[in-house]
Amino acid sequence: MTPVLETTDLKIRLRLTDDWFTVCDLSALLPGRGVAALLPDGRQAAVFADRTGRLYAIDNRDPFTGAAVLSRGLTGTHRGRPFVASPLLKQRFDLESGQCLDDETVRVTAYEVKAA
């Protein structure tokens, strides 16, 4: 397989209630880093790729501070699960479920995401 060819025209798509919403080219994502996407209803999603190319998307708003910055956090793996650490006060969020790993009472929306 030639990954270069494969990624050129693939688009990242997010699942909103019933539609798939196109965010950007897959190649716009650097593994281990996020981007923010503006959704049609004014919300924001933070979209990430891990080093294997798997995609994740959660709400971009940091529930602890209110700022829309989760896409700018550092990612990592905790007990085999992918997470992002908020760049403001460093709380970590599971990228698959949106669950905050440092406060079980907090969770952000997680979106279904694919490259197609």
């Binding site: 593994p31 281990g32 700022a67 829309a68 700018r72 403001l88």
Partner: peptide, 21 residues
């Protein structure tokens, strides 16, 4: 390259993040 993915958010944007983003 890969170094960009390692930097703390401030270094990543070469500026200091404030409380409102």
């Amino acid at each position: 390259g890969e170094q960009a993915a390692l930097q703390d958010t401030n270094d990543h944007f070469l500026a200091n993040l404030q409380k409102n983003g």
